[in-house]
Amino acid sequence: MRKPIIAVIIVVLVVLYASLFVVQEGQRGIVLRFGKVLRDDENKPQVYAPGLHFKIPFIETVKSLDARIQTMDNQADRFVTKEKKDLIVDSYIKWRISDFSRYYLATGGGDISQAEVLLKRKFSDRLRSEMGRLDVKDIVTDSRGRLTTDVRDALNTGSAGSDDEVQTPAADDAIASAAARVERETNSSEPAPNPNSMAALGIQVVDVRIKQINLPTEVSDAIYNRMRAEREAVARSQRSQGQEEAEKLRAQADYQVTRTLAEAQRTALITRGEGDGEAAKLFADAFSQDPDFYAFIRSLRAYESSFADNQDVMVLSPDSDFFRYMKAPTNTAR
């Protein structure tokens, strides 16, 4: 009697265990019955939030979708700028599922690889078009943040038809085809999102970032040569200004030197003149007291200067007044 009860209990427990399923935090669940998705009144796949749920055992299975933010690294690719110059751009995208039922239908059962293929095509075409509107300077400097923001917004909202200056027809066709398949399979009364946006696939692009921008060799050489030429022009301008200032300072210094020397010479001449005048006055005052003695002293100095060299020859008359002090004195008293 106990064995059948135990068997029944075991069966009940197995059935109960198979009837329960848990959707983990950060995930969403979609139940499939005999391989077909359970749908709601609008024929949209039913999405189960995190928690404990029930299903028909052995008949229904659960497909889990990751609700967390995903990172898609893009392989470095070559892009052409407005100047027709190539750039090697390495980037990545942060995205998440915003509409799980739409995402499941658009990607053929929640295939993340198919979603990333469509996202990569749209992103690559949009980034290529946006970069084609900018030159190298704008891309690598202040327009870099605006560039990624514009690309992210364009991925989420899509192009506005003829009003949008940037068109991505190849990627838009693929996304529109997947979005049309979703609309055919559902009866939702809600307005459909723009078929050119990632919202048509149930995807929201959270962020777009450029990790690295490399220049091909020919572009790098051209930019470096231009930068070198600009720096050399600035250096030449600075040197010219420095030489001009140096010439001004040198001219001012020469002017000050010349002026100072002239003032010094003028003062020296004035002082020397005053000294000579004072000396002459002193001599005049001294010799005016005895003019004969003054004449005698001057004659002695003249003799000293004239006979300093023994080789000098002088031809003078003996009666010359020059030799008057060399003659014997006469007795003037008689």
Rank of each mutant, 00 (worst) to 15 (best):
R2H: 05
P4I: 09
I5P: 02
V8L: 15
L13E: 00
L16S: 13
L20W: 11
V22A: 10
V23K: 05
Q27D: 06
Q27M: 14
V31I: 12
L32W: 02
N43R: 14
K44D: 00
K44R: 10
P45V: 09
P50V: 09
F54N: 04
I56E: 01
E60W: 10
T61V: 09
V62S: 07
I69T: 00
Q70L: 11
T71Q: 11
M72C: 00
Q75W: 06
A76N: 08
A76T: 05
A76R: 14
F79P: 03
E83Y: 11
E83A: 10
K85F: 02
L87R: 09
V89E: 00
V89G: 01
S91W: 01
W95H: 04
I97Q: 02
S98P: 07
D99T: 06
F100D: 00
R102M: 03
Q114F: 06
Q114M: 09
R121G: 02
R126C: 05
S129D: 04
E130G: 06
V136K: 09
D138G: 13
T148N: 09
D150V: 09
V151N: 00
V151I: 09
V151K: 01
R152W: 05
D153Q: 15
A154S: 02
G158S: 07
S159C: 14
A160D: 10
G161K: 15
D164F: 07
D164P: 03
A171W: 02
D172S: 08
S177I: 14
S177Q: 14
A179T: 01
A180Q: 07
R181H: 07
V182I: 11
S189W: 14
E190H: 13
P191L: 13
A192G: 04
P195E: 03
N196M: 08
G202P: 08
I203C: 01
Q204V: 07
V205S: 03
D207Y: 12
R209N: 08
R209I: 06
I210C: 03
Q212T: 04
Q212M: 13
Q212A: 08
T217P: 08
V219A: 04
R226C: 04
E230W: 11
A235W: 10
Q238N: 08
R239K: 10
S240V: 12
Q241I: 12
G242M: 10
A246M: 06
A246L: 06
R250A: 05
A253Q: 14
Q256C: 11
L261Y: 09
A262P: 01
E263S: 14
Q265S: 12
R266Q: 01
T271P: 04
R272M: 11
A284C: 13
S288E: 00
D290G: 12
Y294H: 05
Y294K: 11
I297R: 07
S299M: 10
E304W: 12
A308H: 13
A308D: 08
N310W: 13
D312H: 15
M314R: 15
L316P: 00
D319Q: 13
S320C: 14
R324H: 03
A328G: 04
A328Q: 12
A328P: 06
P329A: 10
T330S: 13
N331M: 12
N331Y: 09
T332G: 02
